[in-house]
Nucleic acid binder design. Sequence first.
RNA 1: CGGGGUGUAGCGCAGUUUGGCAGCGCGCCUGCUUUGGGAGCAGGAUGUCGGAGGUUCAAAUCCUCUCACCCCGACCA
Length: 572
Amino acid sequence: MRWSQTYIPTLRENQSEAELVSHQLLLRAGYIRKLSSGIYLYLPLMQRVIEKFSQIVREEMNSAGALEITMSVLCPAEVWQESGRYNTVGKEQMRMKDRHGHDMVLCGTHEETVTTLIRGEIKSYRQLPLNLYQIQVKFRDEIRPRFGLMRGREFIMKDAYSFDASEESFAQSYKKMVDAYFRIFTRAGLDVVKVESDTGAMGGKAAHEFMLLVDTSAGEEVIIFCDKCDYVANVEKATFRLDEKDVKEASLEQAVPVDTPGVATIEEVASFLKVPHKTLVKTLLYMADDKPVAALVRGDRELNLIKLKNATGAVELEMARPEQVVKITNAPVGFAGPVGLKDVKIVVDPLVAEMKNFIVGANENEKHLLNVNIERDFKADLTVDISLAQEGDLCPNCDGHFSTKKGIEVGNTFMLGTKYSEALGAKFLDADGKEHPIIMGSYGIGVTRTPQAALEKYSDDNGIIWPKNIAPYHVHLIPISMENEAQVETADKIYAELNKIGVDVLYDDRTGRPGVKFKDADLIGLPVRITIGDKSLKDGKVEVKARTESEMHLVALDEISKAVTDILERLN
RNA sequence: CGGGGUGUAGCGCAGUUUGGCAGCGCGCCUGCUUUGGGAGCAGGAUGUCGGAGGUUCAAAUCCUCUCACCCCGACCA
């Protein structure tokens, strides 16, 4: 492609709207433009990146036996009502009425649609397994879109859905997808890790996420690693083993109230009473679908909201507002405790269950209770892990310890079980003529998110450095002067030759100054640059340089193709 | 939704405190010169100062309402 024939609006200065390097670069290098909050337009370069990545996805999905289809973005509300998710997805689902007044939704995912498609048509175990996928626009009305394509409201996703007749068959289907995912990300030049994750609103039995590990603030997920075994999990999901050191036998002492004037936080109470944080218990009040819940975690621990949500089975879980806290505990925020609470579900973390003679709020202003004990002073309605795992915790599978890293989720796989097939009536007959719901899985890859995520790893001060397989073009061809006939002639020849052997070339045929072209080339980030100038051309040579490397190679004109393919061969 | 912030030329911003000709840099257009890392000179075009209402002789500036966008939190590929 000739520069003069395409549309690459590069910008000299950074855009104020962008926080992340990757977002900044996509805007500056002329890949994307914003239309509205969380809604982006893909310009020609981005379009090519999307196509290249999509093609990799498509090839690997196809070779894993999945079949490409395209489903609608719009969907009648009844389908979502039937699965039950109409009431649970929340406000991120965009809803509207058509001209006849029918309720419609914009799909953020397609479990309902695809299940509706196959039910009634898949009747026999002989028709299974089946895996259908699409690469298509999704819409989610995110509470807070941010980071450009990383968390847009409209985005492109590859979503696949598997249908199996047995658990054994499903396990194979799932593994095929996991294997395909690793091949996809590897081809795109990205190292990802597979981590255990929460199933969230998707429901189902288990799930994994594919994470690109990054050191930047773009890493929205915290990932827990065991330093000894292969246990890896999203912090939302991670469980850990109780440290035996924390289990102590002690005689129960008399509970006593103590004045704690003006000290409300764990930090303040601990230093006021001169005791370690882990002798205190935090009582956190939440409203689970408008019913109060008290969550008790040890003073040195953070609450894991996802675990609490799962434990309570709540659809909406929100921290109680100060006035609600007052109503529940008769005390201002900071003095809540489990003793004497009425009509409040008390959820106790196992770490707390092991504690003796601990300190809690007294449900009275500026007072705490010392030497409180479970059973004697209050009863737990539920004892379940609700603590956030943290660095140094003990691995649940071995005697290793946890460390943490940050990552960007670029893909996920869900074991859905029969949640959707049962709700929507997708059933098959087995060899004995018995009816069963189909076992399903769903598998997503963020097609627009992934390339931007890649840039969080692959860029430098001068611009983008694309992995070769998702770069919009392979080669950036720059004649120093378009007024110089010999240079132009050479450039034309190289352009034709490389195109012929399937190397994608962006030919900067602008009549501008070379400095501008070099700056734009670095910004756009194609893997290989070929420069044609009088210095080397008088010896019948041109300069070939990899974006990642600083040294140039002088290459004779008849060896260009080989030089370029050699460099591409060794690049990521 | 809560908290914080910003809207002025295509982009980046100053001007708002203390009301008085709407500016700067980059980009864009024309001409000449220049051509190996964002050129120089000369000339030129470009504004609903986010919007509506109000105060005033006079509003980008003060007041009221409103919209959009960004950042922090809850949501999520």
